[in-house]
């Protein structure tokens, strides 16, 4: 088994436990052992707390990285925001000696030191690079054949690309490939590259942007919108409701976190995945049935 430390962040464990359940259910089936870290905090968030003081932000983030270093293993996140914070921290600590010395001086006060021995990945890249698409496909017992899925990449999985090093930000394929491994059919909406808008403090900007984005999701005839970040999820669930009311339009685009979709394809019942709490429910998934086991041919 490959062992990886799990960095859960804030939103998934508090607001979206169904996502955490799905991660804990699906990864062991893919040969990944999850190691829980004691005493993690918020990553801290790359929008608000980073805006307050970047050096504080780096120091708290470096402490989180130290917790995985103490276990001697790499870590993974389930949120693009956590990925941004922890990757950028690793990168700046690695590249910039002045920052590294300042942050390590603070860490010394709590008996820690950042050494750079634990690398960080978003869970999507973990399954791509450590498990592989074919091995994912082998765990699927309920193929989602013919399900049209649009992808919302969000920003911080891919950018800044020099730091994230995940995929080509102008033409990424990782999430399409992950969706295809479940048998589903990824469709690309015109405005796939737009952001969820959560970080913006102006109300109109995200609303107009989301309206444009969802319009193209509808044009692409997607049945759901697959994503890999709890912040983006909130924008496309509660946020979509607000935008639909504001513009009096019915986009009805249910957002689904990839690992819940994977859990469903691996055979977990729809009712056990917490979808009833979403404003936009991916009921279309209910048309898929668990495939009958094929008899092993006699040797």
């Amino acid at each position: 088994m490959n062992r990886f430390a799990f960095f859960p962040g804030c939103l998934v464990p508090t607001r979206y436990p169904a996502m955490e359940f799905a991660i804990r259910h699906t990864l062991p089936k893919l040969g990944i052992e999850i190691v829980d870290l004691e005493g993690t905090s918020c990553c801290p968030d790359p929008i608000y707390f980073k805006s307050r003081d970047k050096l504080d932000w780096l120091s708290v983030a470096a402490r989180n990285l130290c917790l995985a270093e103490e276990e001697g293993i790499d870590l993974f996140t389930n949120c693009s925001g956590c990925t941004a914070t922890l990757s950028e921290t690793w990168h700046l600590m690695h590249e910039n000696e002045e920052i590294r010395d300042k942050v390590n001086a603070r860490l010394a006060k709590i008996g820690k030191e950042w050494k750079g021995t634990s690398r960080l990945r978003h869970i999507a890249t973990l399954v791509r690079d450590v498990v592989g698409y074919e091995a994912i496909r082998e765990t699927v017992v309920r193929p989602l054949n013919g399900l049209n899925v649009a992808i919302h990449y969000g920003c911080h999985l891919l950018k800044p690309s020099k730091i994230m090093n995940v995929d080509d930000p102008n033409n990424p394929t990782i999430l399409e490939d992950l969706v295809r491994a479940l048998g589903a059919n990824p469709v690309r909406h015109d405005k796939w590259y737009l952001c969820c808008g959560k970080a913006c403090s102006n109300e109109d900007l995200p609303a107009n942007m989301m309206r444009d984005l969802l319009t193209t999701v509808q044009e692409a005839e997607a049945e759901l919108l697959c994503l890999i970040c709890p912040t983006c999820f909130g924008q496309f669930d509660y946020g979509q409701l607000k935008v639909a009311k504001q513009f009096d339009e019915d986009f009805h685009t249910p957002p689904v976190y990839y690992f819940q979709l994977l859990a469903f394809a691996q055979g977990v019942a729809y009712e056990d995945l917490g979808f009833e709490r979403q404003r936009f429910k991916p009921e279309v998934m209910n048309r898929f049935k668990i495939r009958e086991p094929i008899e092993e041919p006699a040797k």
Binding site: C155, K159, A199, N202
Partner: peptide, 12 residues
């Protein structure tokens, strides 16, 4: 400045 969405397209 709080209107920035932190998307990093500019950095890209």
């Amino acid at each position: 400045l709080w209107e920035c969405t932190n998307c990093y397209n500019c950095a890209e």
